[in-house]
Design a protein around this nucleic acid. Structure first.
Lengths: 219, 219
DNA sequence: TTTATTTTTTAGGTTTGTCTAAAAATAAAT
DNA sequence: ATTTATTTTTAGACAAACCTAAAAAATAAA
């Protein structure tokens, strides 16, 4: 079966929102996809007849097992292309998302598998998100939020909780990226901000908001 | 300005057909694009208002200078992706066309230029067709048809006159590809077929039809 | 120079994916 | 338990890109 770009975007959006809550609402999809709720309803009906989602009017939606498979395929393509753009074409990791949104809809399965091999079967994309393998399996990484880390423990940034350009701009400005090693030196109760020492560099301040979207692992 | 995939396909088709004859007919486009003449007329009207083509009802169509620029941009992308698929991803040169038809519509200009650099600014794609540079300039190669080559002159295959899978299948079967070196040993007047010695290999027979779509250059 | 044939265009429809405005269902508040 | 507010769905439209069938223009043949 082959799906249109619009269908794929809905499938991906449902998958994404399901990470937060089992059942996904029409409004949530409308916000995620920047389309009106009425348009979402139309598409949900269509996806239901194709058995990609289970959907009862007024009661939200979730992916079928077939739907999950499709979603993982799209995510696989998206993240492989991001890896390619950063690793081979020297894109900044903060500027690949939009291009990958286009590339993820290229349909050739052979292309995806050959790209995967060419890249050396990477397990994580440039934002630290796991890349599904050809069977849809995701590597997991024991990772915690920076906001929950104790003082003086060396950790490494493994992922960011969003791809928003605002976040990526801030990280770039502070010199933070995948693999950056740091220690929390001080936690301020007043505003939840942290003072953090980047390895071999100076101490910087990280807000509570920022600390709660940075994933790290002990090192 | 940004163009839809459908628009880009029309622009490309007009460019392609203009290689044969200055003025392109509705019917020719209909055949090339596998759509009905009525649909072609609709699109031509649209492209005319966008000043991409000049078009007078019943009198055919040709690209404006803007149209030519767009066409060269699409061809550039198509051929760079083909090069990438063959050179980096180990696709056979006979199986890249369809995938490149999809990839050529990815819009990021930055992507194209970075891809070009990554590939080392190749001048010809895997079928021997020249790749427009970032300014739309095409390299030319002094090439002749194999059907017009004199006996016992060493030549090298530089291009094929079509991407049809039937042709590519035949070439593959005969062990002919870009860069193959050969000499014409005998020409039969009866059917125009050739006997050709491939360098360091056996003698094979090439039909008149095949010889007239193989481009070669002296070596 | 008429007539016949081919080519191209017009007129009117269809599908996909979107929209607005209004109605219906659900959830929240008094 | 009603009323109020929010969420979701229905109804009807629209643009893009295609279609078929019929009319009009251009070309070729008689």
């Amino acid at each position: 079966m082959i799906y249109t770009t619009a269908e794929e975007n809905y499938i991906k959006a449902v998958y994404h929102l399901q990470q937060q809550q089992e059942m996904v609402s029409t409004n949530a999809l409308s916000a995620e996809l920047q389309t009106r709720p009425a348009s979402v309803t139309d598409m949900l009906k269509k996806l239901k007849t194709k058995r990609i989602i289970s959907y009862e009017p007024y009661h939200g939606v979730k992916l079928s097992s077939e739907g999950k498979k499709i979603a993982l395929g799209i995510i696989r393509k998206h993240r492989l292309w991001e890896y390619f753009l950063v690793d081979k074409l020297q894109f900044g990791w903060d500027e690949v998302h939009e291009v990958a949104e286009e590339l993820e809809h290229i349909s050739s399965a052979k292309l995806v598998d050959k790209l995967d091999a060419f890249l050396g079967y990477p397990k994580f994309d440039p934002h630290g998100d796991p890349i599904p393998d050809s069977k849809g399996r995701l590597a997991s990484q024991q990772q915690e939020l920076l906001s929950g880390i104790v003082i003086n423990k060396m950790v490494e940034i493994t992922a960011v909780g969003s791809q928003s350009s605002e976040l990526l701009e801030l990280l770039k400005h502070k010199g933070l990226h995948m693999g950056t090693r740091l220690e929390v030196k001080k936690i301020f109760d007043f505003d939840g901000s942290l003072e953090v020492k980047i390895k071999n560099q100076q101490v910087i301040t990280i807000s509570r908001d920022l600390a709660s979207v940075l994933f790290v692992k002990p090192v």
